[in-house]
């Protein structure tokens, strides 16, 4: 954690759109967020990952100034989080869209546009971006969950803010809608906007995010690029007898470099070019080698390992 904070201090300030330092929120006896130091760089898509109740939404609320931190600071576009001149440069969809149910989607956006002094043409632009123009005159209360979500994203895009905070933006969207949302997020970043999004859909985050932060039980466990987090290519081995295979694998990859999959195969922290050496060692030890393959760990696997989730398929062998 200290290492992470030192990294944060070394970032050029202009490059950081969001910077939190020791951000903490306590609700009576429950520590919801515990000293989070997070950095979001200009123009990137930052994925904020964590299991339910990990503190993602509370952190995002503090970044938006909706919730006061118990301790620590949050700086957004170089100013204290929540200041009016900050929220004017930020668009957000936090924990589900909050709109007036009796108004149409279009009128809801018009009302919000008035707060930002934006004209109707901006409302039409964002409606078009989320493909909601055709249903824009329907009342919000009649919208499906996916349409409500699209309207929430449209509201976050009003005025083309520098930073767009999206909390679970694909909730309720069908597969096509999710694909559209991914494309939209990528295009926003290409257009120079910074996107901070939280999502449970790790494959989606892996696909569109430049960097990720993983939070669990209120603490930021890791913040890095997706590639760094996934750790590059590893070797997968399936050989028998298993105990002997583990011994050979540990000799080459080290005690901490071998993980056993539930199907009996081994995952080794070895580069792909170590495969011939591994094959020779296994054969020399008289083992039956069924498979040696190079593989890349998915973000989901890394996430489960980091958060100790019961769904992980791996166990350490050392």
């Amino acid at each position: 954690m200290d290492e992470l904070r030192n990294d944060v201090r070394n970032e050029p300030r202009d490059d950081l759109v969001v910077r939190t330092d020791g951000l903490t929120k306590r609700y009576s006896d429950r520590l919801a967020v515990d000293g989070v130091g997070m950095t979001v760089r200009r123009g990137e898509v930052y994925g904020f990952l964590g299991p339910n109740g990990a503190g993602k939404t509370t952190t995002l609320r503090m970044v938006l100034g909706l919730v006061r931190p118990t301790a620590g600071t949050a700086t957004v576009v170089g100013r204290p989080a929540g200041a009016a001149d900050v929220t004017a440069r930020v668009g957000a969809l936090i924990e589900g869209p909050g709109f007036f149910p009796y108004l149409s989607g279009r009128d809801n956006l018009r009302a919000l546009a008035r707060y930002r002094r934006l004209g109707d043409e901006e409302v039409e632009r964002v409606l078009d971006l989320v493909d909601l123009t055709g249903r824009a005159d329907d009342r919000f209360k009649g919208y499906s969950l996916g349409m409500k979500q699209r309207l929430g994203v449209a509201a976050a895009l009003l005025g083309s803010p520098e930073l767009i905070v999206l909390d679970e933006p694909t909730n309720g969207l069908d597969p096509a809608g999710m694909a559209d949302m991914r494309a939209l997020v990528v295009s926003l970043a290409r257009g120079g906007q910074t996107v901070l999004l939280s999502s449970h859909l790790l494959a989606e985050v892996q696909e569109i995010c430049d960097r990720v932060g993983v939070i669990d039980q209120g603490r930021l466990l890791r913040e890095s690029t997706v590639a760094e987090l996934r750790g590059g290519v590893t070797l997968r081995v399936r050989a028998e007898p298993e105990d002997a295979a583990i011994a050979v694998a540990m000799r080459l990859a080290g005690d901490d470099g071998v993980r056993r999959e539930k199907d009996g195969s081994l995952d080794l922290d070895l580069a792909a070019d170590a495969a011939p050496e591994l094959a020779r060692a296994l054969v020399a030890a008289g083992l039956d080698v069924h498979e040696i393959s190079a593989r890349e760990r998915s973000l989901e696997e890394v996430f489960f390992e980091m958060t100790g989730d019961q769904h992980t398929t791996k166990e350490k062998v050392s």
């Binding site: 078009d128 971006l129 493909d131 895009l157 494309a183 939209l184 295009s187 926003l188 290409r190 257009g191």
Partner: peptide, 8 residues
């Protein structure tokens, strides 16, 4: 969704 934005 139309993925063309004018973020800049």
């Amino acid at each position: 969704m139309n993925a063309t934005t004018n973020g800049t």
